[in-house]
């Protein structure tokens, strides 16, 4: 995101007519090299990998059960012996619940983006490639979704489907299809006029084949960049739904719901109540920084 501008001002562009040496390097190689040089991106990636590993390995890392607490050990503060993150209002170990909760939060944030990317890419590339009434139909329908505040739509869908992880993922997937379809459509429209697509059309290859071989390969970068940028947002939105009681059902731990449940304890045990939120934030910001690095590495303009 930080745009390096050693030459502030437009004058520089006018001055710089010097030719820079061209590197014999493929697009993906260059992208990988740039990513490997981005400190922020690497740190974010490391943080996320660590989160995934500890939440998957949670049973090995903690002796406590995430859903059963000891009523005698309620609301212990951070740093208590045996409970470094303290305990919650039911006497459950917070560290354990954070570790297990990471599983749900990560799934609830990643899965919708994945689903929406697949569906949005199909819809967008189809309407960009075929055009005419197909594009009309698909894109006007997508526009409809733009008319909603996304979070509100997700809440309405979730509310009508009822609580639960699957319903939450469905609701979030629906709200992200439209923006991804737009990106895919725009990217497709840019490349269908390219010569190699024209050439493929002339050889008489069927539409679906061109779409899957040529078009998808070429619109991958912008869509990947856009989708990766959505993950951070999706993590927060998923947590919002859980916070409202529209996510996984208790006692399964999930960060958003934990935050809501601990809301009442802020006068008694304040910093424990803030912990789940910190983890939502840390995950979300790591995804956002990773996405920024990916965008810079792939050199895609927003």
């Amino acid at each position: 995101m930080a745009i390096a501008e050693p030459l502030a001002g437009n004058a520089a562009a006018a001055w710089l007519a010097s030719d820079s040496p061209t590197r014999p390097e493929s697009y993906m190689q260059a992208a990988r090299r740039r990513f490997m040089h981005s400190r922020v991106g690497l740190v974010a990636l490391a943080v996320l990998l660590l989160l995934v590993v500890v939440s998957v390995a949670a049973p090995l890392l903690t002796p406590y059960d995430p859903s059963i607490g000891q009523p005698a050990a309620r609301l212990r503060p951070i740093g208590s012996p045996g409970h470094i993150f303290g305990t919650d209002e039911q006497g459950r170990d917070m560290l354990t619940r954070i570790l297990y909760g990471g599983r749900m939060s990560l799934i609830a944030g990643l899965a919708p983006v994945l689903v929406a990317t697949v569906i949005g890419t199909i819809l967008g590339s189809l309407s960009g490639f075929v055009g005419k009434w197909v594009a009309m139909l698909i894109m006007r329908t997508m526009d409809m979704f733009y008319a909603f505040p996304a979070v509100l739509l997700a809440i309405a869908i979730s509310a009508s489907l009822g609580p639960g992880l699957i319903n939450q993922i469905i609701a979030l997937s629906i709200i992200y299809i439209a923006p991804i379809a737009r990106v895919a459509e725009a990217a497709t429209r840019r490349i269908v006029v390219a010569e190699f697509i024209e050439a493929a059309k002339l050889t008489g290859a069927p539409t679906w084949k061109i779409l899957f071989t040529q078009v998808l390969a070429n619109i991958f970068s912008p869509i990947f960049v856009y989708s990766s940028g959505l993950v951070g947002l999706a993590i927060v939105t998923a947590a919002s739904l859980s916070f409202l009681g529209l996510g996984v059902r208790p006692p399964t731990p999930e960060w958003g719901f934990m935050l809501n449940a601990l809301r009442g304890t802020i006068y008694v045990n304040p910093w424990v109540a803030a912990l789940p939120g910190f983890f939502i934030f840390a995950t979300s910001i790591s995804f956002n920084m990773l996405a920024d690095s990916i965008r810079d590495s792939l050199d895609v303009k927003e």
Binding site: G232, V236, A239, G256, L259, R263, G277, F278, F281
Partner: peptide, 9 residues
């Protein structure tokens, strides 16, 4: 990146 409800809390 920050959840608004966490900021609130």
């Amino acid at each position: 990146s920050v959840p608004s409800f966490w900021v609130a809390i």
